[in-house]
Design a binder for these strands. Structure first.
Lengths: 187, 187
DNA sequence: GTTACTTTTTGATATAGATCAAAAGCTTTG
DNA sequence: CAAAGCTTTTGATCTATATCAAAAAGTAAC
């Protein structure tokens, strides 16, 4: 979803404000597989996924582990870089051709400070981030691989079809072999 | 740490503002074991731990699982109740005699909207919450029970001494038996 | 359509940690 | 200090999922 449309769902934007937003957020059309951020790098950009699916991941013992999928109409930022001034352990890549809007966190913060309705929205975005992690933690801690797979099927049916098995397996915290067996109903 | 002191570390408070805060946050001295929130209940309060340690937990298959420890000088809120208007899956209890400040989330939000410096602080608090979950998720997903125990020893040496073994085990995502064996170095 | 390459599945085996059951250590209370 | 009640430890066994290795299936390239 276009950024402006997204914002308008949450607040009233004056034409001037709208213009300012359009200008402040860089817009890029990117090809499948384009890497937005390499693991270990430093980036204080805020990304908004206008079209496509972004995958964040990190390297663990040489293996590529999916950390999250970011669907259209969602934001993503390296907490480590933007808030803690350390390199981002996560990389990010776009899995399909898509459109990404970016803005330096510093600039966004200025916007937020000056424009009340954005404060509520930014709080909302943060709250959702906390909720997402909290839910995922619960699922890793208490659900079996089978249960996690089932809830992911419910929650992101589309992703399951568009993304290679290995990415999904590592996102679920299991090996590809186990996921394959689960899908085959052999567990 | 006293709430006002905590706030003064992050911003300049006028005497009037200070008085307003003192009044808005109810102050309660509570005995060991006092339950601040029962699992399954609804509460939109924001809690600040001025003294003592608070434990949040939930019930899973009849077992009490520790979700987090909240140390002095930290906030806690039921995301589910305050932000999603659903009952809180988590309960909260104070593990030692202590002092808790509370304010309805609605009231706090008004404060925040009206007082710039609080916006930054509330963002900071949320960011820390995300980071905490993100780290804990990582540890559950990739560290062995032994490694998790070690990092907890480093991070919260005091808690390890003050809290019953069962609470720590469930926090680490393992059984009490396993934790006992780890401590004995039998793993 | 055959070759080469990638992704997925299948099979055999290993292991961290769970579960169940009981013993041993601590606290509290009268 | 003995009885009762918790908390922690120890032991034996079980299970979900990992790991390693190879086969099968799918996709692309010529």
């Amino acid at each position: 979803m276009e950024l402006i449309l997204y914002l308008k769902q949450h607040m009233i934007l004056s034409p001037e404000m709208e213009a300012q937003v359009q200008e402040a957020f860089k817009r890029e059309e990117l090809p499948k597989g384009h890497r937005l951020l390499a693991p270990g790098n430093f980036s204080q950009k805020v990304f908004y996924v206008e079209k496509g699916v972004v995958r964040t991941y990190y390297m663990k013992d040489g293996k590529d582990i999916t950390h999250s999928f970011i669907l259209e109409g969602a934001f993503f930022i390296s907490i480590e870089s933007a808030f803690f001034n350390t390199p981002s352990p996560y990389g990010a890549e776009i899995l399909e051709p898509g459109i990404i809007r970016t803005i330096p966190y510093q600039d966004l913060e200025k916007f937020i400070d000056d424009f009340q309705p954005l404060q509520k929205l930014s709080r909302l975005v943060m709250i959702n981030a906390v909720k997402t992690f909290s839910d995922k933690l619960y699922s890793i801690q208490f659900q079996s691989a089978q249960e996690r797979y089932n809830s992911m099927l419910e929650k992101f049916p589309d992703i399951m079809l568009r993304v290679p098995l290995g990415h999904i397996a590592s996102y679920l915290g299991i090996t590809q072999e186990t996921l394959s067996r689960i899908r085959a109903g052999k567990v």
